[in-house]
Simulated assay, not measured.
Amino acid sequence: MPLALTTCATASEASAALSREGARYLGGGTLLVRAVNEGDIATSSYVRTTDPALSGIEVSQQRVRIGASTTMSMILRHSALAAISRAAKAVGGPAIRNMATVGGNLFAPAPYGDFTAALQALGATVHTTGGDREIDDFLARRDGFGTQAGADAIVTAVSFDIPAEGSFRFVKVSRVKPKGVSVLSIAAVIERDAQGLVTAARIALGCMADRPMRAAAAEKALIGAPLTKAGIAGAVAVIGAKTDPITDPVASAWYRSEVLPVHFSRLLLG
């Protein structure tokens, strides 16, 4: 079946075009086009926009705003984003990173969406044509490729504070390195005082649900603790709380649950 392509000049026009049944927003297309090629008949047309407001990276003091059409390769080339470059580099190989966008990654189902886990740990704000949402709320409401449940709004950008040096941590575990599909991913922003005790923690997990999720129990357990084997024991013990890991050809839910504490411990101590 032939697919129609509508190109809009602005993000608002693209949002309106998405009201048509079967319309899907097309960014880099690394997941959407593949799904269609594999037989997804729910998509009957693509909608894209050439709005320049969706591209580029803006840095103002310690706050960064990344357009939804910005690719992972663009992030890797930007000197101000060196702290989170490891998360962008975890998205496929060079060919994928040249196409995969920040906006598209927000909608990637597990086992994809590694960069979104990083954004969740960073406490990002998601900007859409329908308004702004904190990323935890956005992920709870997301639905399908490029839309939110009950709305035709599209993502225009994400913004977050650049983490302090050494506070951002990220690991992607895969069977095929360096660009294999995730067994799991963990992103964390850990802040400590002069004595080395944790004062704040945001931890996000990939593949431990159908979308990235916060590890609230582990975050709470880390507060006031040093990053030593004994100090993190409480957080490691509860890192799997309220998770619902996926089972796919890469790994079973049981395996993901078993190795999560191991890799979380390594991330904190490493």
Score class of each variant (00 low, 15 high):
residue 42 A to F: 01
residue 98 N to F: 00
residue 102 V to W: 11
residue 101 T to I: 08
residue 50 T to I: 08
residue 127 H to I: 07
residue 221 A to H: 11
residue 20 R to A: 06
residue 91 V to Q: 13
residue 129 T to V: 04
residue 250 V to K: 14
residue 33 V to S: 09
residue 173 V to L: 13
residue 201 A to R: 14
residue 191 E to M: 09
residue 202 R to G: 01
residue 123 G to I: 09
residue 126 V to L: 06
residue 199 T to C: 09
residue 270 G to A: 08
residue 261 P to V: 00
residue 5 L to R: 15
residue 246 I to Q: 09
residue 125 T to F: 05
residue 6 T to S: 07
residue 197 L to M: 03
residue 207 C to I: 01
residue 152 D to Q: 13
residue 228 T to V: 03
residue 147 T to A: 05
residue 19 S to C: 10
residue 58 E to C: 09
residue 207 C to F: 01
residue 262 V to E: 10
residue 249 P to M: 07
residue 250 V to C: 05
residue 102 V to I: 15
residue 46 Y to R: 07
residue 89 K to G: 00
residue 43 T to A: 04
residue 104 G to L: 08
residue 165 E to W: 02
residue 141 R to K: 09
residue 261 P to T: 01
residue 110 A to W: 04
residue 256 R to D: 06
residue 18 L to E: 02
residue 137 D to G: 13
residue 184 L to V: 02
residue 10 T to D: 02
residue 119 L to E: 05
residue 161 D to V: 11
residue 30 T to W: 11
residue 270 G to I: 09
residue 124 A to S: 12
residue 38 E to F: 06
residue 129 T to H: 06
residue 94 P to F: 04
residue 176 V to Y: 11
residue 217 A to C: 10
residue 221 A to L: 05
residue 96 I to L: 15
residue 37 N to F: 00
residue 94 P to H: 14
residue 9 A to M: 08
residue 101 T to P: 00
residue 33 V to D: 04
residue 133 R to Q: 13
residue 116 T to E: 01
residue 243 T to K: 10
residue 127 H to C: 04
residue 76 L to H: 08
residue 131 G to S: 02
residue 216 A to M: 14
residue 235 A to G: 05
residue 81 L to C: 00
residue 57 I to D: 07
residue 153 A to E: 14
residue 191 E to C: 01
residue 213 M to V: 15
residue 92 G to V: 10
residue 267 L to Y: 07
residue 173 V to E: 09
residue 76 L to D: 11
residue 115 F to C: 06
residue 157 A to H: 12
residue 212 P to L: 13
residue 7 T to D: 02
residue 123 G to H: 08
residue 268 L to D: 10
residue 28 G to Q: 11
residue 128 T to L: 02
residue 198 V to G: 07
residue 88 A to L: 02
residue 190 I to M: 04
residue 227 L to G: 01
residue 226 P to Y: 08
residue 74 M to D: 15
residue 32 L to Y: 09
residue 248 D to Y: 05
residue 196 G to P: 05
residue 242 K to Q: 14
residue 156 T to P: 15
residue 68 A to M: 13
residue 128 T to N: 04
residue 12 S to D: 12
residue 235 A to L: 05
residue 48 R to N: 04
residue 108 A to T: 12
residue 173 V to K: 13
residue 110 A to M: 06
residue 206 G to Q: 10
residue 254 W to N: 14
residue 91 V to M: 08
residue 146 G to C: 06
residue 69 S to M: 15
residue 219 E to Q: 15
residue 126 V to F: 03
residue 219 E to N: 11
residue 153 A to T: 07
residue 188 A to W: 10
residue 193 D to S: 02
residue 107 F to I: 14
residue 238 V to I: 04
residue 141 R to E: 06
residue 204 A to N: 12
residue 213 M to G: 03
residue 233 A to I: 12
residue 82 A to D: 08
residue 166 G to I: 05
residue 139 L to Y: 08
residue 255 Y to T: 10
residue 127 H to M: 06
residue 89 K to Y: 01
residue 187 A to G: 05
residue 181 V to W: 02
residue 212 P to G: 04
residue 32 L to R: 14
